[in-house]
Simulated scan of single mutants.
Amino acid sequence: MSEHLHDASWRTAITATLHCLAGCAIGEVLGMVIGTAFGWGNAATVVLSIALAFLFGYSLTMRPVLRAGVALGAAIPIAFAADTVSIAVMEVIDNAFVLIIPGAMNAGLSSALFWGSLVTSLALAFVVTVPVNRWMIGRDKGHAVVHGFHQHTDL
C-alpha cells in the first residue's frame, strides 16, 4: 500500500471543498446575476456562470501559490491540476439543480425563488463534492497539489 503525502480526512476534504466553493460561488452568483439582469437566455447565463466559476475558482487557488513565490506560468497548471475536477463537479450539480427548478432561471433578482434555488444548488454541490475531494486528496490529486502552498489561516 502506498503512503499518501496528504491527510485525506473528512476535515481536509471539507476545507478543500469550502475553498473551491468560494470561487465557484462568486463566479456562479455573478454569472447568474449578470445573465438575469440583462435578460439573457438560460444557455448564455449558464455558460457565463460556469466560465466565471472556473475563473474565480482558479484565481483563488493561485493566490497562495503566487504568494509562495511560484511564477504565474507555473501557478496556472498547478491551479488547473488542483481544482478542475472539483469545480467541474460543483458546476454540473449546481447548474443542473437550478435548471430543474421550475421558474428559477426566469425569476427576477428580487425573487426568493431565484436566490433560494441558487443557494440550495451551491449547498448541494458542496455536499456532493466533499467525498470527491476526499478521494482525490487521498491519492495526492486535486487540492493535495496546492496543500503545501496554503497557510492554515487561508481559506
Results as ranks from 00 to 15, higher is better:
66 L>Q: 10
88 A>P: 05
44 A>W: 14
52 L>R: 04
58 Y>I: 09
51 A>Q: 07
81 A>M: 04
59 S>Q: 13
55 L>K: 02
82 A>H: 03
66 L>M: 11
50 I>T: 14
60 L>M: 12
48 L>N: 03
85 V>I: 14
53 A>I: 13
80 F>D: 05
87 I>G: 00
46 V>N: 06
64 P>L: 11
68 A>P: 04
69 G>I: 13
80 F>I: 14
85 V>F: 03
63 R>F: 12
84 T>I: 02
45 T>R: 11
88 A>M: 08
70 V>Q: 00
45 T>N: 13
59 S>A: 15
55 L>I: 15
48 L>R: 05
58 Y>F: 14
61 T>E: 11
87 I>D: 02
69 G>D: 08
87 I>S: 00
59 S>F: 15
84 T>A: 05
54 F>Q: 04
72 L>F: 15
61 T>W: 09
77 P>C: 02
52 L>E: 03
77 P>R: 00
71 A>G: 09
84 T>K: 01
69 G>M: 10
49 S>D: 14
64 P>V: 04
87 I>P: 00
83 D>N: 01
52 L>N: 01
70 V>W: 06
67 R>S: 14
69 G>H: 11
78 I>Q: 08
81 A>K: 10
84 T>H: 03
63 R>I: 15
68 A>I: 08
69 G>Y: 11
79 A>F: 10
70 V>E: 06
59 S>M: 13
84 T>S: 12
76 I>N: 03
75 A>P: 00
45 T>W: 05
46 V>C: 03
66 L>P: 04
58 Y>L: 12
86 S>Y: 07
54 F>M: 07
55 L>T: 15
46 V>H: 10
54 F>R: 04
58 Y>T: 10
85 V>G: 02
62 M>Q: 08
69 G>S: 10
77 P>Q: 00
47 V>A: 13
64 P>S: 05
74 A>H: 13
55 L>V: 15
68 A>H: 04
74 A>P: 07
78 I>S: 02
77 P>T: 09
52 L>F: 08
65 V>A: 02
83 D>E: 10
76 I>P: 03
67 R>P: 08
52 L>Y: 10
50 I>F: 11
